[in-house]
């Protein structure tokens, strides 16, 4: 079995498995974010639970971080190996004649998402970790705010038009990444994705609706406060 993951196909499968995990995580993430549009209180309660529950903090969170790092590191490694496999490049190459832009530029859409993830960590994750584990304040409250602080912080973050702009652009890249990635991951797992219309449509729906949802939430908070 260890030989399997050293083979080219094994690496494809590892890439696909990490991608499935990330796509599942995005579903959870958007569900929680959507709550912020409907109910401030519920959003606060759920955020506090996610932020302080030990199973999530010390069980799920490390798995997630590992998943993200694993995915982009392997993505970059495979890209480098593939470039080496090409050697001399063509003087004239008409890639558009037989493939989509998305499929040829996964590493660039991926790099854009990575840049976003870094920004996102600086925005939300590092301050949270700092408050909770460095300062040691697990109360989830903040001076000058009644009840939990999460919704207040969210509102505050989305005041800045540049941040909102960056988020919107990043999610466009996520959509491009997924428009190829969704069916690609199934194909890597041995499912003949190209012949299954239902799967292709599900992929298109996921790749467009999820990023659009994140964009909607960011714009909603920007224009509503």
């Amino acid at each position: 079995m260890s030989g399997f993951f050293k083979s080219s196909i094994g690496r494809k499968v590892a890439m696909a498995l990490s991608a499935f995990f990330l796509m599942f995580f995005l579903l959870i993430h958007i569900t929680i974010n959507l709550i912020s549009v409907f109910s401030e209180d519920t959003f606060n309660t759920v955020s506090h639970f996610m932020g302080t529950n030990p199973l999530i903090q010390f069980g799920m969170q490390p798995v997630l971080i590992f998943g993200v790092v694993f995915h982009f590191v392997l993505g970059f490694v495979l890209e480098l190996k593939n470039r080496k496999a090409v050697g001399v490049s063509y003087a004239r190459n008409n890639g558009g004649a037989n493939s989509t832009w998305m499929s040829r530029n996964m590493v660039y859409s991926g790099a854009a998402i990575l840049a976003f993830i870094v920004l996102h960590f600086i925005d939300f994750w590092i301050p949270e970790i700092n408050t909770k584990y460095i300062i040691g304040d697990m109360s989830g409250t903040m001076e000058g705010v009644e009840g939990f602080r999460y919704y207040e912080e969210l509102k505050h973050k989305f005041e800045d038009p540049f941040r909102v702009g960056a988020y919107v652009i990043a999610f466009v890249f996520l959509a491009l990444h997924l428009l190829h990635g969704f069916t690609s991951a199934f194909q890597s797992m041995g499912v003949t994705a190209g012949r299954k219309k239902g799967l292709q449509n599900l992929g298109k729906a996921y790749s467009i609706i999820i990023p659009l949802g994140f964009i909607f939430i960011a714009l909603y908070h920007h224009f509503n406060h």
Binding site: N82, T100, Q187, S188
Partner: peptide, 15 residues
Amino acid sequence: EGFGNCTNIGACEIE
């Protein structure tokens, strides 16, 4: 042999 890793682009099938 040093062939690269498939990323399911699908250009091969078309060409």
